[in-house]
Structures are given as C-alpha cells and as structure tokens.
Design a binder for these strands. Structure first.
Lengths: 235, 235
DNA sequence: GCGAATTTGTGCGTATGTATT
DNA sequence: TAATACATACGCACAAATTCG
C-alpha cells in the first residue's frame, strides 16, 4: 500500500495544481465525475478530497454549480488573519500604509527561530505604519521567508498583503498563531503613532503557516486602540 | 421530506442522548453497525453524523476501539476557552480562586443584550479573583444564563468552571467569541490585584455559546500579565 | 413560466484495510 | 490468532439547486 489514503493523495495533487495555476482563483474545477474518471477512483473518494479542500479554504462548493477555486483577494479571505475591528465590526488597520523601511537581509537568530530557517536563509524585513480614518494606528515589523514564497527580489514584494501575496506565489496559507500582550509605547513608536511615550498598546506577535505546516511570515505589531478591539473566535 | 438531512437529524438525537446521560462521558457509543440498525439507516449515514459529533467535540473516535463520549473534565477540554499561557505554554489563571461575591439577580440591560435574554430572566452574577503561582493575576465578572443551564439555585453553581459545569448540566459548549482590549486598572481592581491604579491590563470580554447557538456565559476579565500572553489560533 | 441538463448533496449497501483487544 | 470496530473505497440511485433554452 501507499503511505497515505487515496483521497489524501488526490487532495495533494489538487492543491498542487491549484498552486501552479492549472485552475485559477474564481474558476471552476472539473466536476466530480470527470475528476473521478481522470484519477480512476470513485466519486466518493473525490468527494472526500474535495471535502478537505473546502475545509482548508482552497475551494468552495455550490450545489448545482460546481467547485470553485477560492480567490484570496476577496475582502473576507484577505483579512482573515486581521482580527482588529471597530464598534461596527468592520476591519481596522488594513487601510493605507506608510512604508518605513524594507530590505532583504540574512535572518537574525530570533527570525530564524520563528520562521524555522537555516543559517544562511534570507528574509524580507519590512517596517511600516498603518492608518485608520486618517490616524496612524499600528506600527508593524514583518519578516517574510523568501524561499518559501519563491521570492528573489524586493520588486516581487512591495507594500504587500500577506494573503494575496501568498496566493500569487502559489502558497496556501492554512493557519496563524498569535501571541497578544500589552506594552508601553517606546519613544520612537510613540512619535510615529502621534501619541505619548508609555501609552498602552496592544502587541500582536503573529506567525502564519502554509498548508505544508511551514511558517511563512512573522509579524509583530503595536496597536494604538481607540474604540477598536481584537476579536478572537474559539471552538 | 423532513426539514433537514437524515444524518443531521441523527446527530441531533445523539447529542440529546449524550446530554441526557444515556451515554456518559468517557463511555463508548454502540458501534456504527448497531447504530445503523437502530435508526434503520446505512452505516455511511451514521458515519456522517459521527463525523459532525467529532468535529463539534462531542465524541472522539479511535480506529479499532470505538466512539467515545468526550469528558470535558479533562485538562485539555476544560480550559479550551482559556487562552492565557506562560512562557512554557502552560495555562495561567485557572488555578486557585478567591470568590468575592455571587448572587442570583435579574439580568441588567447589558447582560440581557449579551446573553440574549428576556426582560425577567435571571442570571448568576459572580465576581472573583484568580491566582497564578500565589499572585493575584485576574479579576473576573461573569454572568450565567440560569435557564439555559437548568440552574435554579446558587448551590448548583459555586466556584464553577464553565466547561465542566455545562457538561454536568447537559449543555454542549460549541464556541466562544472574545473581545480583547487594553485597559488601565481602576482603583478597586488594582487593590485586589496588588498593583498600582492605572496599571496596564488586558481586558477579555468573552461570550460562550452552546451547540444550539444560544449564549450561556458572559465573562469580563481584567488580567495583570507578567511573562504571560494570550495565545490566539486562527484558521 | 417551464422543463431539461448539469452539478453537488444525501443516502444505501458492500468489500476491504488497519488498529485494538 | 481471532474477533471487533473504525477507516477507506467502490458504485449506484435519487434529491436539490442552478442554469439555460
């Protein structure tokens, strides 16, 4: 026997095809019967693979219509790892940004540790400021594992949003793990956020992982909350 | 036709039986073939119902052994809505408690709103202090929707943990939604937490829902974090 | 407006694989 | 080794939603 269940092997093949752009975001996959024929398996096996693709947010299925590759440029998916909302429940801090610095560098020890990188791996380190209704509300430092995204130059990155960027590079983001603490604003950050040093901030330390389980981005954000809050969901 | 799929009807029946204690926590359900016989459906239909029970953390299944009712008194499940951990990753703030006040009362407007109660519904309002390695670390105010848990007196509550309490009362908790903000310690809370007024605290405003979608408990906590953090997971 | 074609959703029954006891 | 129970896989039939002529 092979090392894993048939439906999981088919899942892997379908993920790979979608990553490579065989079926593009928003487009329909072949129907279940065609897929079953192609792989010489039963429709039930295809359905279990599609079940998992749906659970992992790679596709959506609509009875009577078909199975569609999800487009992670959509509002809902792009900001699925952004948990800060205002009183109306609308996302905060994903609006206009001010890029402060961005460069390619060798990963420092803590970056290597967080991103599970080797000694000479490179990262894209970005510092920026995010705004909400005209006010600077968040200071961010982020690190991208270049090799994981197949990135070789800064031009491929720019003022990115991680979810659409990952989709463009054929990487499916599966989950994120975030550590929250409270922190006093350092002098330099306070200046950038137009607030006083020592101001209470919410600190977000987030790691995003791909479907393969490897970390892709590490981001630390300092948030100056007004009437906003971090909305966590648990199951 | 009936209003929902067969496997969902069976899911409902199985949940109800487990809630009523027909199969107790830790015990095995009848095997799939027996269940199929009892309900006069195919094994595949039973399996879909069991899939959902497993996804909703009502049972766990072990190949070769059987399907078992989960015991929410276990460490892992009891604290699944407690997200604060220390550097070692172990839970914080679920240790010894100091009960401050506890009483049955008519729900106030904000409590009615949060818990989706009617005008004359009663709640159990509890204020307490939680400790970690001897230090007071968290001040909590919680509200229990009495009717939802079938509670009629304070003796049935006491210094409760919500997950085991809900299991005891035959309610399956499905999910929680929590709002996080930073807050300055009020004078009275600062005294209780042995810290200075104005100290930066993490404020947790949490609502827990049952499998039926109804809110069961509303809790607001003020946390004095040392080397601890709130660990959020996202998918 | 309606019916036919298409596609996913639900359900049945059976056979075989794999882990546990 | 044998019995038991869940996991995987196959194939078929029909229901329900969508689309289109």
């Amino acid at each position: 026997m092979s090392r894993s269940a048939l439906y999981l092997q088919i899942f892997d093949i379908l993920v790979e095809r979608i990553s490579k752009g065989v079926w593009r975001p928003g487009r329909a996959l072949p129907n279940e019967i065609e897929l079953a024929r192609e792989f010489s398996v039963s429709v039930g096996t295809i359905r279990k693979a599609l079940d998992k693709l749906e659970a992992d947010r790679v596709i959506s299925r609509l009875q009577g219509k078909g199975s569609f590759v999800l487009d992670h440029n959509s509002e809902k998916l792009t900001f699925r790892f952004s948990k800060i909302v205002d009183e109306n429940g609308s996302r905060v801090g994903e609006g206009p940004t001010t890029m402060l610095t961005q460069k390619i560098a060798l990963a420092k020890p803590d970056e290597r540790r967080c991103l599970a990188l080797r000694d000479h791996d490179e990262i894209v380190r970005t510092r920026r400021l995010r705004h909400h209704v005209g006010r600077p509300c968040r200071y961010e430092t982020s690190c991208l594992a270049m090799a994981r995204l197949g990135i070789t130059s800064l031009e491929e990155v720019g003022d990115y949003l991680i979810v659409p960027l990952a989709q463009k590079r054929g990487v499916h983001l599966a989950r994120a793990s975030e550590k929250l603490t409270v922190a006093a604003a350092p002098v330099d950050v306070a200046a950038l956020l137009h607030t006083e040093p020592g101001k209470m901030l919410l600190k977000l330390d987030r790691l995003i992982f791909g479907l393969d389980g490897d970390p892709v981005e590490w981001r630390v954000a300092l948030c100056d909350l007004r009437n906003e809050y971090y909305a966590a969901q648990m199951q």
